[in-house]
């Protein structure tokens, strides 16, 4: 849909709907924390940001003819390689996969004793990976500074011209 639609408003709304559906998929796959982060950030904030960008730039995509063959070949090549990579993986939902065999169960056992929080994901995020979460906020701060620096020059330039 996003390929053929010319109106960017429809494209952005569909992208928001996609985020919401993906949040539901996360719930199905037991990742409730990820699901409501995705619903708030992906379907909410990201859609609002894109709408704001659209309002400041253009609403309708220009009609352009781009060659489609080369991208198609590249995408197919990447797809074949990735699917080849999955052939060695354990089945979806398997108990004996390498991802389940090591640290996951350890954290399930020790998180409540260490933190007293029944939600294991929150416990790991805020304590065992606390420095990483701090680094994440630094990333967000840097991005915010970048956005401010990029956008603060806008009006001055117009006045000069």
């Amino acid at each position: 849909m996003a390929l053929t639609l010319k109106h960017l408003f429809a494209v952005i709304m569909l992208s928001g709907a996609f985020s919401l559906v993906s949040a539901m998929l996360f719930v199905v796959m037991d990742a409730v924390d990820v699901a409501f982060t995705e619903a708030a950030v992906g379907a909410g904030v990201s859609t609002v940001l894109m709408l704001a960008t659209m309002a400041l730039t253009v609403r309708v995509q220009k009609e352009t003819k781009k060659p489609i063959l080369l991208p198609l070949v590249v995408v197919c090549l990447v797809g074949v390689l990735l699917i080849y990579g999955t052939l060695d993986m354990p089945n979806f939902g398997a108990f004996d996969s390498p991802a389940q065999a090591h640290l996951g169960s350890t954290y399930l056992n020790i998180t409540y004793k260490d933190m007293g929080i029944p939600n294991v994901v929150t416990g790991i995020l805020a304590s065992y990976r606390g420095y990483d979460t701090l680094g994440e906020t630094v990333v967000v701060l840097t991005a915010g500074l970048g956005v401010i620096l990029l956008l603060s020059g806008l009006k001055g330039r117009k006045d000069k011209e």
């Binding site: 990201s46 730039t57 996951g104 994901v121 915010g144 956005v147 020059g153």
Partner: peptide, 30 residues
């Protein structure tokens, strides 16, 4: 219980993703 570790990693990745999206959109406006 499902494995909590991928959930933790992806929570971080979602927030970093929105940061890069915001920066990209600001670049588009510029």
């Amino acid at each position: 219980y499902s494995n909590p570790l991928p959930h933790v990693l992806i929570l971080t990745a979602i927030v970093v993703g929105i940061a890069t999206t915001a920066l990209g959109l600001a670049l588009i406006i510029k």
